[in-house]
């Protein structure tokens, strides 16, 4: 429906502007807070315009020990931890789920439906539900304070498997038959036909899973006790209560800004593929 009425145009723009302000204001405050020194941030009224300490704050946050009087790791290292975790979760999940969807859709093996339902059931068991047994397993495997321990338990999940199953079901059977006549074996079909055809879906899933992995809080909090293994999202909360002193808002906000950056970059750079992957149905 396209209507050209000035009042409506003004109204819709107002609604959109309100929405943008609601989302942008907290980010602006974060940015402003990250650009003042620690003392200014404890005085009332709080500043609404940026100060001149932005680059200085960024330097001490990224490279220094962060808060004064604590022995935390530099934020760049925590971001590196987060990145490793998010990437392992994203790639691991995509790899596992695309292979299992391939097996379920294209192979007839005994108990195929059994396996299908087994995978399905994991939908009902996110990490939060199975956190105690999962912790027990990870601890017994000696994976506490390791990247494997951070990412492995989050990799196993059904959602992505289902998405790929749906994608594969939309690929016409003739594609497989044509490949069989061309002499492509199962793995060749997988690499040459299936993977390229699911390219946009993989990209869309990567964006979702990267952000999911990056934002993990509970699980990393539980299994990392080493300061060296802390992720940046977990550390944000710890900074607030650290050192039993007044929170250093400038550093905390700078950390928050930095923590926001990678998900934004991923979304911005993969936006086109992301939208395609979620909307394109033509195979």
């Amino acid at each position: 429906m396209v209507e050209h009425r000035p009042i409506l145009t003004v109204l819709t723009h107002l609604v959109m502007l309100t929405g943008i302000l609601l989302i942008a204001f907290p980010i602006w405050i974060t940015f402003v807070a990250a650009s003042h020194d620690a003392i200014r941030m404890t005085q009332v009224p709080l500043p609404l315009w940026p100060g001149d300490q932005f680059w200085h704050n960024m330097k001490i946050t990224l490279l220094g020990s962060g808060l004064r009087g604590t022995e935390t790791t530099p934020v760049w290292w925590m971001m590196f931890n987060s990145l490793v975790m998010a990437l392992s979760i994203a790639f691991g999940k995509i790899a596992i789920s695309i292979i299992s969807a391939f097996a379920i859709v294209y192979f007839r093996f005994p108990f195929r439906m059994g396996f299908f339902w087994l995978i399905f059931i994991t939908l009902m068991l996110p990490v939060e539900v199975r956190i105690l047994p999962t912790f027990e397993v990870v601890a017994n495997l000696g994976l506490l304070n390791s990247y494997a321990g951070l990412s492995l338990p989050l990799i196993a999940s059904a959602t992505a498997t289902f998405m790929f199953r749906q994608v594969f079901l939309t690929i016409p059977d003739e594609m497989l038959e044509s490949a069989r006549i061309d002499g492509a074996g199962p793995m060749r079909f997988f690499w040459d036909i299936l993977l390229p055809l699911s390219r946009t879906n993989i990209a869309a899933l990567f964006v979702i899973l990267f952000i999911y992995g990056w934002n993990q809080y509970l699980w990393p909090l539980l299994i990392t006790t080493d300061a060296d293994m802390t992720t940046v999202v977990v550390s944000l909360k710890q900074m607030l209560t650290a050192a039993e002193a007044t929170p250093e808002w400038n550093i905390i906000m700078m950390t928050a800004l930095l923590a926001m950056l990678p998900p934004i970059l991923v979304v911005v750079f993969m936006q086109k593929l992301f939208v395609k992957g979620l909307t394109e149905t033509d195979k």
Binding site: E174, M175, E177, S178, R180, I181, G183, A184, D192, I193
Partner: peptide, 16 residues
């Protein structure tokens, strides 16, 4: 199928 020395044309073409 690949070893039968045949070629097939499908209704929906089945091009990659």
């Amino acid at each position: 199928p690949a070893d039968r020395d045949i070629a097939m044309v499908f209704q929906n073409y089945a091009l990659y």
